[in-house]
Computed example of a mutant assay.
Amino acid sequence: MASEVFNALLKERIDIFKSAFSSVSTEVFYDQITKRLRHTSEYGTFREAIVRDFLKFVVPRSLDLSTGFVITSMNDVSTQCDIIIFDSSMTPLYVEGDRQRFFPVESIFCIGEVKSTLGKSQFADALNKLAKIKMLSERISHPTIIRKGTPGPFDPLNNPNDLVPSILICQKLDFDISNLEADIDEMYDFSIEHRHKHNLILSIEDGVLAYASEGGFLPYPSLAGVNLKNQLFRPTEGGVCHIRAFAMLVFMITASKTLFYPEISDYLGRLGGSSLIQS
């Protein structure tokens, strides 16, 4: 039996999100005289804030949301992410205020990109950007597990919860998507492993793209080393069922994500020619 209260609250949040993302943001930043967007950078920032407000309702309360860069103790620095969902209690290098924000990969629970209307090449660029950041999930010097849904060692090849999940949110895919499930794999660079591909793609106008399974619909490109096939869940006419599905799956990937301990001695390295911590 479903909860009428929760469903009513979720519907309200979805209605606000859809209206603000699709209509309000454009009305605020669209110049009727020039027929162009004004202040495009602020327009993007405004939409990112709308997405973060919506995601706060569907991710575990212990997590926080921001924008910034992913770093590893192996000296990797990602390109900037529009959305970073992280465990603030395990993020000692987070910088607040207007300065740049940096997040140890061990404490990140999800990364995401927020776009408007995407052509095919722009869509491919966004997918590959996310995949390359997701690859940093495996760049952990000494993986120390604090919390894990299924017992076992660090195993990103077989356990998708050991990888940082990735999401892409946009208004519309502005190209032929009639065979998107089959075409999307060809949009990735040859160097991208299947497990590093997107978890979820939400196009407000076109639907949500995840993966087919015996149970129906999952947000994991690979399970136990088996590559799953893409599946597009299209919206009903004027409906928001695809956004409801997206919200449910975002909760799944963030609630199930493995939390690691960011070993600060690995990040600091050696001081004065010797290890920071002596055994």
Score class of each variant (00 low, 15 high):
255 A>M: 01
30 Y>D: 15
225 G>D: 00
159 N>K: 08
73 S>T: 06
128 N>W: 05
151 P>D: 01
122 Q>Y: 10
272 G>I: 14
27 E>A: 14
264 I>C: 04
26 T>C: 15
205 E>L: 12
172 K>E: 11
90 M>N: 09
95 V>D: 08
99 R>A: 14
168 L>H: 00
30 Y>N: 13
79 T>M: 12
49 A>N: 08
33 I>G: 10
193 E>M: 06
134 K>W: 01
85 I>V: 10
238 G>N: 07
172 K>C: 08
59 V>F: 06
12 E>R: 15
40 T>F: 15
67 T>G: 08
92 P>A: 10
161 N>I: 05
131 A>M: 11
26 T>A: 15
55 L>N: 02
18 K>C: 05
114 V>Q: 05
137 S>H: 04
247 A>F: 07
253 I>N: 01
145 I>Y: 02
249 L>D: 01
208 V>A: 01
229 K>G: 12
48 E>V: 12
141 S>N: 07
176 D>S: 15
246 F>V: 03
133 I>L: 05
103 F>A: 01
254 T>M: 06
75 N>H: 14
186 E>P: 04
192 I>W: 03
161 N>A: 07
91 T>L: 13
73 S>M: 10
74 M>Y: 07
132 K>Y: 13
38 R>D: 15
20 A>T: 02
187 M>L: 14
73 S>H: 10
206 D>G: 11
220 Y>V: 02
250 V>T: 03
61 R>A: 06
36 R>D: 08
44 G>M: 07
132 K>Q: 15
56 K>H: 13
12 E>I: 09
221 P>K: 10
11 K>S: 11
195 R>L: 02
108 I>R: 01
264 I>E: 03
188 Y>A: 09
58 V>D: 05
261 Y>E: 11
144 T>P: 04
209 L>I: 13
91 T>R: 14
66 S>F: 09
85 I>F: 03
17 F>Q: 04
260 F>Y: 14
126 A>K: 07
267 Y>K: 09
117 T>E: 14
271 L>W: 11
183 D>P: 01
234 R>F: 12
191 S>I: 15
271 L>E: 10
113 E>A: 15
262 P>A: 04
225 G>W: 09
